[in-house]
Design a protein around this nucleic acid. Structure first.
Lengths: 201, 201
DNA sequence: TGCCATTGATTGAACAATCATTCAATGGTA
DNA sequence: TACCATTGAATGATTGTTCAATCAATGGCA
């Protein structure tokens, strides 16, 4: 499909040139096609950008949903599966991280982009919140409201993504995952275990 | 000074239109000046953008350094002062957050921007790391390496900033601060106390 | 003081480059 | 042929930059 070919080229271009430096020429050159083709399959550049963001959002959604459903039955297993999905090799690549932050750095259009993916994000947040509530109730953890834990998790996803993007020279998905596992083991110590730390880091 | 006037206008314009939508016209219009003035005081648009980023970085630096030096003498006090500086009313405004993420969403120029503020960021990280080491040693906390705590803190700053930017309708600096205090109270329970949670959230 | 020359800041029209979009022409296929 | 996908030159709009002209402020001097 030409559409997917162009979306892939758009991801490449944004990762390399940013949204501002992404033009119809850069996209079609990467795709190996001619200039006019974008306005044929997508009706405008703005539409191409939105479809690209939607593609990434859906890809991420499918990833964590599948991990969630295939995980063990316990709430901690399911929560960790969602965490891991954020750092899955197909989702958490330097290129795709660059595109995510390119979109959310775009003030003025942020509302447009946000409305495109709000439902998807909300679904994940609600599930994570429910899992935290289950764990808190079952484990008798009363000092932190589940909502607080879910919020911190969301912030950690984004914050670690940004660190991976900013310092790609120490790009390590496993370290990212350990950060979150560390947090969970401190909040729900009977349900998550502290990862083992190798020397140095 | 005209330079500061133009930098302020640039912040306003980026917050409203994004970097892509920020032109010489939008900046000079907001500043109430004429078109050619930017190239007189700054030699190019790119230079204006870099000076704007530098201004924000220095402002942030001054903020946390002053808070750090004026804080209590204990390591926990000093660490919390640095945390608080991130959510100070002068630093953590919707406009300025928008500008930060606009810059770091700009792939292609990210290296340029990063090199501009790397030293400043490194200084803060080093101090936080040293404080964590002191606390860990003094308190006998052996299960988490201080570097791990410092890294998670950095990620939390960015992640919470992004949440504040994305969901400005629930913009509350105090909630942001509580998130980090919660984390610290779980990692170093004898040195930080869990914030009190009001009902609901 | 009154006058003029000099400097530096400011203006905005003009220019050249870039970009998204359009569309007539072409190619391929059933 | 009829239909759809594709091409790429042309168009019009926008943008960063340049620069000659204007303005304001200062200083020197009689």
């Amino acid at each position: 499909m030409r559409r997917q070919q162009l979306i892939d080229a758009t991801i490449d271009s944004i990762a390399e040139n940013g949204i501002g430096g992404t033009t119809m020429s850069t996209v079609t050159e990467i795709a190996g096609l001619s200039l006019g083709i974008v306005n044929f399959h997508f009706k405008s550049k703005q539409n191409l950008l939105e479809e690209t963001l939607l593609f990434l959002a859906k890809e991420h959604h499918d990833q964590w949903l599948e991990a969630f459903e295939n995980a063990g039955l316990s709430a901690p297993d399911k929560l960790l599966a969602i965490v891991d999905a954020h750092f899955h090799p197909q989702i958490c690549t330097p290129k795709k991280l660059a595109v995510w932050f390119a979109f959310f750095g775009e003030a003025g259009r942020r509302e447009v982009y946000r409305s495109l993916i709000n439902d998807i994000d909300q679904e994940r947040y609600d599930i994570a919140l429910r899992l935290c509530s289950e764990i808190a109730e079952g484990g008798g953890y009363k000092d932190i409201p589940p909502r607080q834990v879910a919020n911190i998790l969301e912030a950690l996803y984004d914050g670690i993504w940004l660190e991976l993007l900013t310092y790609p020279e120490n790009f390590q998905r496993s370290v990212a995952r350990d950060h979150i596992a560390t947090f969970l083991s401190k909040v729900y110590p009977d349900h998550f275990q502290m990862p083992a730390f190798n020397n140095g880091d």
